Lab assay of single mutants.
Amino acid sequence: KQVQVGDEKYTFDTPEEARKFAEKVAKEKNLKVTEKNGNFHVE
């Protein structure tokens, strides 16, 4: 599963790991997490 933050992409083995990372980054940057096709976008 992938997490996209701006132009950066991070790959994780499980959706749970990806979601945790996305939520942590979103909180730090005051952004929101959206899920698209099983991948997460922080925007």
Rank of each mutant, 00 (worst) to 15 (best):
G38E: 04
A26L: 03
V3R: 00
N30W: 06
Q2H: 13
A18V: 00
A18R: 01
A26R: 01
E16Y: 08
G38V: 01
E43R: 09
T11E: 09
K9F: 14
P15L: 13
T11H: 11
N37T: 04
P15D: 10
E35I: 15
T14A: 04
A18P: 00
K32C: 13
T11K: 07
K27G: 08
R19M: 06
Y10T: 02
K20R: 13
E23Y: 14
N37D: 13
K24I: 07
N39M: 15
V25I: 13
Y10W: 11
T34S: 09
F21I: 00
E43M: 12
R19E: 03
H41Y: 15
K36L: 12
H41W: 14
K9G: 05
V25M: 11
V3W: 03
K9M: 14
Q4L: 15
V42C: 06
Y10Q: 02
A22T: 00
V25A: 06
Q2T: 15
F21H: 01
Y10P: 01
F21Q: 00
K29G: 11
E35H: 08
F40V: 04
V33R: 03
E17L: 08
D13P: 10
Q4H: 15
F21V: 00
E23M: 11
F40K: 02
K24E: 10
V3H: 01
E23K: 05
E28S: 08
K9V: 15
E28N: 07
T34F: 14
E43K: 07
E35R: 08
L31T: 07
P15C: 13
V5P: 01
A22P: 00
N39S: 12
T34M: 09
G38A: 02
T11G: 05
E16N: 06
A26D: 02
F40L: 12
T14K: 05
T14L: 05
K20N: 10
G6A: 06
T34V: 14
G6H: 06
E17I: 05
N30H: 10
N30T: 05
A26W: 04
N30A: 07
A22Y: 04
K36M: 11
E35G: 04
F21A: 00
N37G: 09
V42D: 03
K32G: 07
E8A: 12
E28P: 05
Q2W: 15
K32Y: 10
V33G: 02
H41R: 10
Y10S: 01
Q2M: 14
F21N: 00
E17V: 03
F21R: 00
K29A: 10
K1G: 13
E35Y: 14
F12P: 00
A26S: 06
G6W: 06
A22W: 05
E16H: 06
K9Q: 11
P15V: 15
K1E: 03
K24R: 11
E43L: 11
F40Q: 02
F12T: 01
F12Y: 02
E17C: 09
V42R: 02
E43V: 13
V25K: 06
K29H: 14
T11S: 10
H41G: 05
Q2N: 10
K27Q: 11
N37F: 07
R19G: 01
V3P: 01
V5C: 14
E23P: 00
K27W: 10
F40A: 04
K1A: 15
T14D: 11
T14R: 05
N30D: 08
Q2L: 13
F40I: 08
E28T: 07
K1I: 15
N37Y: 07
G38P: 02
E8D: 11
E35M: 15
Q4S: 11
E28H: 07
D13C: 13
E17P: 00
E8T: 13
Q4V: 15
A18K: 01
K24D: 08
F12K: 00
V33K: 02
K20T: 10
K27R: 12
L31A: 11
L31N: 04
E8S: 11
D7T: 13
A26N: 03
A26P: 00
V3T: 02
A22E: 00
K24G: 07
E17M: 07
F12I: 00
K36F: 12
T11Y: 14
P15H: 13
E23L: 09
V25W: 08
K27M: 12
V33T: 03
T11V: 12
K24S: 09
D13M: 08
F21K: 00
K24V: 06
N39G: 10
K32H: 11
E16F: 07
E17T: 04
A22H: 01
Q2A: 10
R19N: 02
Y10H: 06
K29L: 15
V42K: 03
Q4N: 10
A18M: 01
